[in-house]
C-alpha cells in the first residue's frame, strides 16, 4: 500500500528557516521517523534529526508533529487521515540548533542540581531489603526515558522562558518524587522542590501527563504528591505544630 504523502518539515536554524514540503513514499507500518529518514536518504542528506533506537526506548527523537509533542519513532503514519497535512517541527521550548535538533542542555544542567540517592546502611550481608510494594511507585518514575517531551509541553517554561531559572520541570519532579518516596533514601529534598525546583509554579494542567510516551502519571503520581509533601512541611500549621511538639518522623 505504498502511497505518496506530503510532509512539511522545518528546515533551518534560529536565525533563518522555514517550512519545506517533501513528497515522500510511505510504506505500510511506517512511522514519522521512517519518513524523515527517507527524506534524508533521497532528498535532503543534511536534514538534521536526532535519533537512536527507533523503538521508543531511548527518547532521542522528540519533535512536534502537527503541533503535538511526540516521539517520531512511535508515531505511525496511519495515525493521519488521508490528505491530512503533516508538519514536523523541532521542540519549541529549547534553543534551536538546526532543523529538528534542539539544544536540550537545560535538562542536563538541571539534573546536576538534584542531590544523589543516599541510602541508609545495608544489612549485614551488604545488601538491602525492600518489598516490591514499596518500590512500585519509584519503578513507575524510573520508566522515564528522558525524551523531555513533558518539559517541552510545559507552558511554565514553554511560554515563559524566563522561568527556566526558577523551575525544574515535570521530568525533575518525577525524579524528586522518586527519590523522596524511595524507602532507603535518607536525603531531604523538599526544600529544593519548593524553593529551587519551583514545584509551586506548576498549575497541574496535566499536559506533561498527556504527552508522556511511557504513560507515567506525572501529575497524579509525582507532582501532586510532591506538592502535598511540600504542603506538609511549609503550608500546614497543624503538621508544623505537631512536628515541633512530637518531633518529625520519617517512616
Amino acid at each position: 500500500m505504498n502511497e505518496t504523502v506530503n510532509v512539511r518539515v522545518f528546515r533551518g536554524d534560529a536565525e533563518s528557516g522555514g517550512w519545506r514540503d517533501y513528497a515522500v513514499e510511505v510504506e505500510e507500518g511506517q512511522v514519522v521517523l521512517d519518513v524523515i529518514h527517507r527524506i534524508q536518504a533521497t532528498q535532503a542528506p543534511d536534514l538534521a534529526v536526532r535519533w537512536n533506537c527507533k523503538a521508543g526506548k531511548c527518547g532521542s527523537c522528540s519533535a512536534e508533529i502537527n503541533g503535538q509533542p511526540r516521539l517520531m519513532c512511535m508515531t505511525r503514519m496511519n495515525l493521519f487521515a488521508p490528505g491530512e497535512p503533516i508538519t514536523v517541527a523541532p521542540m519549541k521550548t529549547w534553543p534551536l540548533v538546526r532543523d529538528l535538533v534542539t539544544d536540550v542542555s537545560f535538562n542536563y544542567e538541571t539534573a546536576k542540581t538534584i542531590p544523589a540517592f543516599k541510602p541508609r546502611p545495608p544489612e549485614a550481608d551488604g545488601f538491602w531489603r525492600m518489598q516490591q510494594e514499596d518500590i512500585e511507585r519509584g519503578q513507575e518514575f524510573r520508566k522515564c526515558i528522558e525524551c523531555f517531551l513533558c518539559q517541552d509541553v510545559c507552558h511554565v517554561i514553554r511560554d515563559h522562558p524566563a522561568n527556566k531559572a526558577a523551575f525544574a520541570g515535570p521530568r525533575f519532579f518525577v525524579r524528586l518524587a522518586e527519590l523522596e518516596m524511595h524507602p532507603l533514601d535518607t536525603e531531604d529534598r523538599l526544600e529544593l522542590a519548593r524553593r529551587d525546583a519551583g514545584v509551586g509554579y506548576c498549575n497541574i494542567t496535566k499536559c506533561c501527563t498527556e504527552v508522556c510516551p511511557e504513560n507515567i502519571h506525572i501529575t497524579d503520581n509525582a507532582i501532586i504528591p510532591l506538592k502535598e509533601r511540600v504542603a506538609d512541611r511549609y503550608f500546614d500549621p497543624v503538621r508544623w505544630l505537631g512536628g515541633k511538639l512530637f518531633g518529625r518522623r520519617r517512616p
Binding site: V156, R158, D159
Partner: peptide, 15 residues
C-alpha cells in the same frame, strides 16, 4: 497543550 499561554508573565501557584 502546546497552545500559547495568555499571560505575559507567570508565577503559577508559587505566590
Amino acid at each position: 497543550c502546546a497552545v500559547g499561554d495568555v499571560a505575559p508573565s507567570y508565577r503559577g501557584e508559587s505566590r
